[in-house]
Design a protein around this nucleic acid. Sequence first.
DNA 1: TCGGGAGTTGTAAGCACTTACACTCCTCGC
DNA 2: GCGAGGAGTGTAAGTGCTTACAACTCCCGA
Lengths: 340, 340
Amino acid sequence: MNIYDISKIAGVSIATVSRVINNNPNVSEKNRVKVMAAIEESGYTPNVFARGLGLNTMKTIGVMCADSSDPYLAQAVYYIEQNLRKNNYDSLLSCTGYDHETKKKCMDLLLSKRVDAIILVGSNYVESDDRMNDYIRNAAKSVPVMLINAALNAPNVYSTLCDDFSATYEITERFIKQGKREILYLYNSNSYSAIRKLDGFRSAMKANKLHIDEKLIHFISSHSKSVHEVKQSIKSLCDKGITFDGVIASDDVLAIGAIKYAKETGISVPDNLFIAGYNNFDITEYCDPTLTSVDNKLPSLCTHCVATLMSVFSNDTSTPKQTIFSAEIIERQTTKLNQK
Amino acid sequence: MNIYDISKIAGVSIATVSRVINNNPNVSEKNRVKVMAAIEESGYTPNVFARGLGLNTMKTIGVMCADSSDPYLAQAVYYIEQNLRKNNYDSLLSCTGYDHETKKKCMDLLLSKRVDAIILVGSNYVESDDRMNDYIRNAAKSVPVMLINAALNAPNVYSTLCDDFSATYEITERFIKQGKREILYLYNSNSYSAIRKLDGFRSAMKANKLHIDEKLIHFISSHSKSVHEVKQSIKSLCDKGITFDGVIASDDVLAIGAIKYAKETGISVPDNLFIAGYNNFDITEYCDPTLTSVDNKLPSLCTHCVATLMSVFSNDTSTPKQTIFSAEIIERQTTKLNQK
DNA sequence: TCGGGAGTTGTAAGCACTTACACTCCTCGC
DNA sequence: GCGAGGAGTGTAAGTGCTTACAACTCCCGA
């Protein structure tokens, strides 16, 4: 069943059928009805390949993320998919892992499928070593590239992110206002946003004239976020005689590791120890006590990023290259931050 | 840059170029090298649309799930994507929500994109009202359909699932062996696997000659699994004077709601109340006490389902139509089940 | 020396669509 | 009454690939 069959049934030329399919206004009402009826009765669907050949687009967008089972990335992928669908675009998902070479390969694969744009979800795609970002610049020569939670200055590259610096700055300052002096900062990546968060922490400490003990800035490796591992890592830190009265983590799972540690050691949270996470996952409500966290407005980021791409597609020259949203601190039981 | 350009650079015909691209053996070594070099130096990538037109396949598989931000489905989508990629297939993701009409529409969209197969992730795609499954049977007329965590008997429809009946049966029996008599069963859907789980519970109760109090079989509506809502729902149940000494939930989040309720009410878990969840999410380790749950072998399911599709594609007539894996009970602090 | 087959290669016909361009009506203003 | 112009339509030329089929080149044995 192809466009010729439909044209025969409807008694018109294939051009007219094509026009009806593509909502071209230059078709008489009479013929439009005839063609619609023919399509309806035969259950005809235009062949996307032939269509893609002519139009050189298949209304499909490549969505890359390191690991779609990570709760944060999974949510992002979900919101993006929903927004794309509203705009009649489909999502070609590519889970790349964290390895640089694999990321490159996945991107090439997406490009070879002639996607209309690529969305890179997660700050791990922009490396602090700028040479490593060439694969993004290169892809941007073919299609628009949108970064979520990262930024990169390059032609045809767009960024949508959250102000992680300020959020971490503010949460740190609130800890300090509550009398906390020895704050343990936990992080588990050196991604674009991780660096900005850490910057926020350091800046707030400096602004309040507090000494930054580098031993209290603690990196917990691995992307496989097991609470148990985190707990062990904190424990081994304490075994070295390090003390702290607050924990700020760049991720909720890290913070839950801290809660588990405190419980095991008999430290009362929040009375003797403040703990704050980041991302405001559902799990902040599952743990006990419930976890103060930062909502970084993922739904807004995703809606905006898709809208921006649509704007790019329509050749709107006033499309913003970079948009920064502000995050919101959600207070729960692990802190008493109420006064700003 | 197209196949004609490459043929000119290499000094051969387009047929030869095409043969090299498709690893056709009928090419002389000399020409193969020349063509490879031309492709390499020009950075040429075959146009997938033109290719799709000829071959009528684009090595892309439609992956449908209700909500890819649901942790269980997110993991499934991830494993599927990884397995498909290994086999050089891409995943076209479609998040359909739980509405029947939307599911149908999403499926039509995928079919119109000429995917090579469709994977339905999650038991909510098979309805107990069999008429509603016609859209699956219909899709199977065009491409193979694979169900994960559900089963449906129809031509060209394949199923990969876990034995949720037996797992729930066994966990219920273990509760009974530990002296539990009034077991609250919590569930939040009437999907294929939800029904099988409940069957398992009922069967175990009956097999042990225990009375099933229908008031203790408690449905908690909504797919938006908020722990707080669950807690409230259990609370209102207890306010009616209903008592229980065990909670078996069809989902970890429901079980965590029960933990929260117990904590609020001062009931000691597991001393006075056993609680077990299902799915064995990471969150079973986040809550306190940690949650006994059922691991339903998602990685195995996903690996197997992709392998099965590949087998279908190769026209292997010995492809299994349905495969059932067995689940595993993972004991944690909310129960003391150790004796089998 | 020549026929025949194996190994290569190229030509050309699809595949199913879009769209520029030319053509036919018809209407409307003068 | 006639020409201009707009609306609607169809023809045909792409779009970039696959592949059947024909043709061509060797090389070997008769």
